[in-house]
Design a protein around this nucleic acid. Structure first.
Lengths: 339, 339
DNA sequence: GGCGCCAACGTAAACGTTTTCATGCGGACT
DNA sequence: AGTCCGCATGAAAACGTTTACGTTGGCGCC
C-alpha cells in the first residue's frame, strides 16, 4: 500500500483535489464543514503531502544549504547547532555539505544543491566574488560567513576578528605587560590576517614604542608549541603572548611549561575563540569569546529574510560581537566588555 | 531569465527531451554524435536538472536524514563529520535535524522529512519500537544508532558500551587497584545503563570479593565533581574510580584536586568517550575511546546499503569497537586493545 | 528485391501538487 | 421580481523530469 496522495484524500472526503489543497494550506475558500471533513479524511489516511511535488510547482523547498570547509572541531559543531536551532524555529530544513577543499569541489557542491535549497550559507576560504558569480545562479540568495569578500554584492556576516584582537592586545598592555608578541595564523587565512591586523593596530595605538614580534603558526597545537619554544629562545622575551587562536595558545602553554617558564608570572598568554578546552588547561586560558552558535543563528536568520523578501534588502555586512574572558594566564585583572 | 530546462536543451540540440534525458543519464540508446551535441547544448545553457522534478518521478531523493537529540559537544560534531564524509563518498546529501526532546517533536520531525529523504539515521533516547512503528512509513529504511531497541525489526548500530566498561574495569583491577567505584550516568540512559552493566559484570568476574560502589551522576561535569566529593568522604575510599563518561571524570578530578588527593597515587581515575579535553587536563585522563566518526560512517554505509537493496538485508545489529587509551590517571601501565 | 529486425529517436503519459479560471448557487439590493 | 455579486467548489493546466511505447529508417538475409 503506497502512501496516500491528495487524490485519495479528495475521494475520501468527496471533494476535489483543489479543495483539499485549499483546506490544508491556504485556509481561505472552504466552508468550515468541508474543511473539517477534509481534515478528518487526511487524518484517517495519514496523508502527508509529497514534498517533491510541492517543490516542483511552488519553487520553494523550505530548505537551506550550508556549505562548510570541514566539520572538524568545536567551532563547526557550535555553528551548525546555531544554524539548526534557527532553522527549526523558522520551519526550515538544513542540508549540510562539508569538506570543500578546492574550488572545483565547492563548485560541484553548489551545483548539486541547485534546486534543493532556497538559499545558501557559505563558509569557505576559497570562494571569492569571481567564483560566486561564476557558479551561483544569480537568483539564489546567499549569505557569506566570515568571508573576505566585502563588496556590496553579497550579504556577509563576520566575526569581529579585528576588534577582538585589538581589545585583547589592549587588555594585555593595560595589565602592565610592556611588550606583546603575536603567534600568527596560517598565511592567506581571513581570520588570521584580520587578527594580525588587529594586533598591529593595537600595538601602534597603545604601545607605539614597543617592538612588534610576530612568529609564524598555522592554527594547530603543534605550531603553537614550536612558536612558544621560539619565543623563549629569543634574547628579549616578550612579556605577553597573544596567540591567534586557542589551539596554538594551548600548544604554547605546553612549551612554556616544559621549559619551566611560569604563566603568567614569567610570561603572560592569551588566545582567541574560547573553545571549551581553555577552561581545563592549567592555568585556565584568557581568551576572546565569540558566540559561535549566535553566529550561525544570525546567519540563518539573515538568509531567511533574504529568501522571504528577495532582492529587497540591500546587501549588508554585519559583524558579530565578542567578549574578553579573563582567566588565569594574563596576569592582569581588568575585565573588559564589548558587543 | 529563468534556469534552463530539459526542453531548452532539447530545442538547442534539435532533439526530443527523451533523448536529452537518455544522453545525460542512462547512456544507452543515443548515437555518440547526438550525445555529444546534447552535452554541448547542456553545457552552453548551463543546464542543471531540476532536483524536485526528478525526485517526483524517480521516487529517489539521493538524500538521507539524520535525526539527532541535540548537537551539543564534540560527540555530535564527530558523528556528523563521519556521516557527512560517507554520504559525500556515496553521492548522497545530508539533511540534519536536531533538538528532539519529546516524542511529539520527534514525530513531527519524521513527518516533515517524509518524501525528502531515502532513509533515516536516528539517534534518540526517546524512540522505541512502538514509536517507530507508529510514525515511520514502513517502506522507509532506517538505521538506529546507539539504541536500546534490539528486536529483529530494525537495523541497529551500537557503541560497545558494555565491552568498553568491562575492559576498563578489568584494566584498573589488573593495574593493582583492589576496589573500583563507579560514577553512574543518568538513570534511563541507554549508554549509562550499559556501562554500569559492564562495570558490574567485570567486578563480578575479576574481583568477586570486592565491594560494589556506585554513586549517582548525570553525565555532567558538576555531577562528577559532587560524586568525587562523596567518594572522598566515605570511610572506605575506593582505590580507583571509573566514571561513566569523561565529563564526569573531569569534574571528579577537579574535586580530588581541590581536596588535596593526588591522582593517581592516592586514587586512580578513568573515564569513557575520549573527548579532546581528556588530553589537556592534568594529569591526562585514562579513558576508553570510541571512534565516533567511524560510528557515523558505518551507520551511513549500512543505511545506504539498505536503500540500495530494499528489504533484502535482514536487520542486523552491529557493535563498534573501542580501545582503552592509557594516560596518567590510572596508575597501571598495561595497555589493552580490542576491536 | 522484399522481409524483418534492431537501433535511434520521438510522443505522450505519469509523478502529486498548486493555482487559475470557470461554474453554479444563494442572497442582497434595486 | 430580476440582476448582480460574492463565495464555495470543480476542472484543468502547469511545474520538469523519466520512461513505456510507438515510429522510423537502415541494413542484413533469404
Amino acid at each position: 500500500m503506497a502512501a496516500a496522495t491528495i487524490k485519495d484524500v479528495a475521494r475520501e472526503a468527496r471533494v476535489s483535489v483543489a479543495s483539499v489543497s485549499r483546506a490544508l494550506n491556504g485556509g481561505g475558500g472552504v466552508t468550515a464543514a468541508t474543511s473539517a471533513r477534509i481534515h478528518a479524511a487526511a487524518e484517517r489516511l495519514q496523508y502527508i503531502p509529497h514534498a517533491a511535488a510541492r517543490m516542483l510547482i511552488t519553487r520553494r523547498t523550505h530548505t537551506v544549504g550550508a556549505l562548510l570547509p570541514d566539520l572538524y572541531g568545536e567551532f563547526f559543531s557550535e555553528l551548525i547547532r546555531g544554524i539548526d536551532l534557527a532553522a527549526r524555529a523558522r520551519g526550515l530544513h538544513l542540508l549540510v555539505s562539508s569538506s570543500h577543499g578546492g574550488a572545483t569541489e565547492a563548485a560541484a557542491a553548489v551545483r548539486s544543491m541547485q534546486g534543493r535549497v532556497d538559499g545558501l550559507l557559505i563558509l569557505s576560504e576559497r570562494v571569492d566574488t569571481a567564483f560566486l558569480r561564476a557558479n551561483l545562479p544569480k537568483a539564489l540568495p546567499v549569505v557569506l560567513l566570515n568571508s573576505a569578500v566585502s563588496g556590496p554584492a553579497f550579504h556577509v556576516i563576520n566575526i569581529d576578528n579585528h576588534g577582538g584582537a585589538v581589545a585583547m592586545v589592549r587588555h594585555l598592555l593595560q595589565a602592565g605587560h610592556r611588550s606583546v608578541a603575536l603567534i600568527a595564523g596560517p598565511p592567506g587565512n581571513f581570520d588570521a590576517s584580520e587578527r594580525e591586523r588587529g594586533y598591529r593596530e593595537a600595538m601602534a595605538r597603545y604601545a607605539p614604542r614597543a617592538a612588534l614580534t610576530v612568529v609564524a603558526g598555522d592554527f594547530t597545537e603543534e605550531s603553537g608549541y614550536r612558536a612558544g619554544q621560539q619565543l623563549l629562545a629569543r634574547t628579549k622575551r616578550p612579556a605577553a603572548v597573544f596567540a591567534a587562536n586557542d589551539m596554538m595558545a594551548v600548544g604554547c602553554l605546553a612549551a612554556f611549561k616544559d621549559a619551566g617558564a611560569r604563566v603568567p608570572e614569567d610570561i603572560a598568554l592569551a588566545g582567541f575563540d574560547d573553545i571549551p578546552i581553555t577552561r581545563y588547561v592549567t592555568p585556565a586560558l584568557t581568551t576572546v569569546r565569540v558566540r559561535i552558535a549566535d553566529f550561525g543563528r544570525l546567519a540563518l536568520e539573515r538568509l531567511a529574510d533574504v529568501v522571504e523578501h528577495p532582492g529587497q534588502e540591500t546587501p549588508s555586512a554585519d559583524t558579530l560581537g565578542f567578549e574578553i574572558v579573563v582567566r588565569d594566564t594574563c596576569g592582569g585583572n581588568k575585565p573588559e566588555q564589548n558587543s
